Simulated assay, not measured.
Amino acid sequence: MTPPKATIRPAVHADLKAVSDIYAHYVHHTVATFDETPRSAADWGQWLDDLTGRGLPFLVAEVSGAVAGFAYAGPWRPKPAYQYAVEDTIYLAPDATGRGLGTALLSPLITEATRAGRRQMIAVIADTGSDASAALHRRFGFADAGRLTAVGHKHGRWIDTLLMQRPLSEPGPDHERGLPPAERRR
């Protein structure tokens, strides 16, 4: 597999129509997402602003001047105790799959989430019958953390989700390594 020449960069508002179109494909035609209504470009704009306001990465893969995929690290759960855990999300344009763009996006996503002071990255992968997403995550050190059976129902079928987890930074002896500098003991 020869990956296309891709530029991986932070998403900007001008990218969000393409992001919306890519995601809409998965909403309408797959069970990779449990959303049943696509998000508008304006919705994506609010999400981009929220993530960047939290210091979290939202990246796009650009190939030949067009957005061919996107990835972001979003909050794992809304409760404060989960603030150092993020969930990764990666979607590729339907004609851009299987060419190495997932790898090209996940590597810098992990780096940027680590720089943002997060300690754990979690992948929630719908069991679509393909192992591609799980295999991608395993290549980056994610380990199986569990399976939730028949938790989603979409397109007339019940879907399991595979949970995978990867440490971004290890706690030090005082369990503070990985905290943002402002929260470390001096």
Rank of each mutant, 00 (worst) to 15 (best):
A182G: 13
P173R: 13
E176F: 08
P94M: 11
V60P: 01
L168F: 00
L162S: 02
R138K: 12
E87G: 14
M1Y: 08
A32T: 11
V67D: 15
S64R: 08
M1R: 14
E176C: 11
P181M: 10
A14R: 11
P38W: 04
S130P: 02
A150K: 10
I8P: 05
G100K: 01
P3T: 07
S20P: 05
V31A: 07
A14G: 14
D88L: 09
S64W: 00
P108S: 08
R99F: 08
H25A: 01
L92H: 09
A135H: 05
L101S: 09
Y23W: 07
P80W: 06
A18E: 06
T103D: 14
T114D: 12
K154V: 15
Q120N: 01
W44I: 03
L148C: 13
S133V: 03
V27Y: 07
P108R: 09
I159Y: 09
D35I: 14
S107A: 14
G172S: 09
V27C: 08
L59T: 15
L162N: 10
T33A: 12
G117C: 01
M1I: 06
T52S: 03
A126P: 04
H13M: 06
Y84L: 12
V67W: 11
G74C: 05
R119H: 06
L101A: 10
T37P: 02
A123G: 07
R147S: 10
A134G: 03
Q120D: 02
P78A: 03
P94T: 12
A135M: 05
G129E: 07
H13Y: 02
I122W: 00
D88P: 04
A18G: 09
A116L: 08
D131P: 01
R185M: 08
D127Q: 04
Y72W: 11
